[in-house]
Design a binder for these strands. Structure first.
Lengths: 339, 339
DNA sequence: GTGAAAGCGCTAACAT
DNA sequence: ATGTTAGCGCTTTCAC
């Protein structure tokens, strides 16, 4: 492993000059620059990033905290974050919290130990008081998560609009008894979605019946279970918003096995535009999240914060989803922006 | 940001002693140890990882090179790699090559610049000569990839066995005209799979007809295209191995739209056990890769290499897949090991 | 059992 | 335009 010193010696110059060439500083004569470059090539010199990090007080690494990588939405998000980061010459460390507050805290410490320049959180398991303390050490950006009254940038999709648009679509398709699924009401994002959904219903003089409201629903098997509840309900709804493509697929798959015809017997709406939505028969009406745009913005914002060295500031960066209307709610499919 | 010096001063001791406490060295009196710990807590001291990396010549970071994160198989692999790495206190930097040899080279340089202690490659886009040169700087482990005559550890699944088992299963189900899809023949892994497949056919006195052999096939739409080729072929095969769940799903979805009944009109086998395989109707017979085991082994091996500081050595760590027999090839499903 | 001092590889005042 | 020098924060001989 050759060092900057070796290069300097071989070129017959000082470490400073070599460093200047390395960092494209002005005030280096063409002549010496060539000498340095030759020496570097001859030695196969590459700067040591630990030394640079120590000296410059920056690592060029961003940590991404994510509950579970293999969840299709999250893997798409990571994919886009990686692309955006690499365009700005940042590396991404991937940290799987597995929805554990303890792991989340451990990973946030990467900021304290200066192993990373910033953290992107795609969900939040701890009390904000705990997270907030970490802002003394570096920037934190929320991507795909909203928390009220906190001083960090947040990048997210307007869930209220998408909830509203979905309900509106179902109402316009003639449905009057509509079921709703959610994975919880503790997240601001999910609350907003529900609020938008209910608003559209209210505007049409409708509401969600008690027996048509399902909580803590997220997997394929949850979907299958829900179908069975509907199946045994003599006054079952004519449409259901599932909040998740997996749940939608589970419901549809089970419904078909029991002889139901979708959407005639039950219209189904998913969420996230996973691959299955176009593979199922019928293809599933779903919400396309602007993953690429959100990822690019999150990286933009955090890189900006890193440079400005100003970590506390409330900013909201809001994007709009698209409703992809497919066979599970209609015969003819089309695209509709939720705006 | 407090440093080790600050802690030393506050505790009225030397940097050395603080460092000893930090690294659990022996020969520190209980009394002073307590003093140090108190001081650290008082200051909220956390060691700076750049300084440690520079001094110790190790970063505790492993780079994972992956073609595309959102591919379900790869996202599962990353998930498991992250879990295994974090158990050994390593962080993972995720590098998306997008099948580009240039990006791959850029990322391999992380080894030279000492930004990472080792690299796990899940595919390989460059000539091995180029990769090999990087072994002077740190360990490289292949996970899910085989390259002949190279001096690195390789962790993989026995593709020959799985190809053999799949063909055997189709033959035993009574099929005599069987189609084969592959995403290419340049990879040793895919070649092995094909060899095993053909061997089982040969043993039954069968072979793959020219028109039943499909190359460069990997996506849902590829699957749909293939179905149309079969559809217009008056002597179409009775079974098809697709090499990919996406392709299998594409074929099935399109076949059903054209009135075919699966598996009666066509038996279909996928690969990877993605979520869709259990959602499609019929559920898809597929190969379950031992992702978790391979990931754990890959981390084990690379951590070992890092410690031993011996990077060149040919080792093969082979695992066996499981064939999940489902509705797309049979009426009654069951699990069969490919061993 | 504890401390003084050297140095990992790099950059940036500062001086020339 | 180029070089000298002082650290960044940490670990580790070596000496006591």
């Amino acid at each position: 492993m050759s060092t900057i010193e070796d290069v300097a010696k071989l070129a017959g110059l000082s470490r400073t000059t070599v460093s200047r060439v390395l960092n494209n500083h002005p005030y280096v004569s063409e002549e010496k620059r060539k000498l340095v470059i030759e020496a570097m090539e001859h030695l196969g010199y590459v700067p040591n990033s630990s030394a640079r990090s120590l000296r410059n007080r920056k690592t060029g690494i961003i940590a991404v905290l994510i509950p579970k990588i293999s969840t299709p939405f999250f893997s798409q998000l990571i994919e886009r974050l990686e692309i955006a980061a690499s365009e700005k010459n940042y590396q991404l460390i991937i940290c799987q919290t597995q929805y554990s507050d303890k792991k989340e805290r451990t990973y946030l410490d990467l900021l304290k130990t200066k192993q990373v320049d910033g953290v992107i959180m795609t969900s939040c398991e701890n009390d904000w008081k705990i997270i907030d303390a970490h802002l003394d050490y570096g920037p934190i950006v929320l991507c795909n998560e909203i928390i009220e009254n906190v001083e960090v940038p947040m990048v997210f999709m307007n869930q209220m609009k998408s909830g509203y648009t979905i309900a509106k679509h179902l109402i316009e398709s003639g449905h009057r008894k509509i079921a709703y699924c959610t994975n919880g009401t503790d997240k601001v994002t999910l609350q907003a979605r529900e609020t938008g959904f209910k608003r559209a219903l209210a505007e049409a003089g409708l509401s969600i019946h008690r027996e048509d409201y399902f909580q803590h629903v997220s997997s394929i098997s949850d979907g299958k279970n829900i179908f069975h509840q509907l199946y045994h309900n003599c006054n079952s709804p004519t449409a259901i918003f599932t909040g998740s493509d997996s749940v939608a697929a589970g419901i549809i798959s089970e419904a078909k096995r029991h002889g139901w015809v979708i959407p005639q017997d039950l219209a189904v709406v998913g969420f996230d535009n996973m691959e299955i939505t176009e593979l199922m028969d019928p293809m599933i009406t779903t919400v396309i999240q602007p993953v690429e745009t959100m990822a690019a913005k999150a990286i933009d914002v955090i890189v900006d914060k890193i440079h400005k060295k100003q970590y506390r500031s409330r900013e909201t960066h809001e994007f709009t989803a698209t409703l992809a209307i497919r066979e599970s709610t209609l015969v003819n499919s089309k695209l509709v922006a939720t705006s």
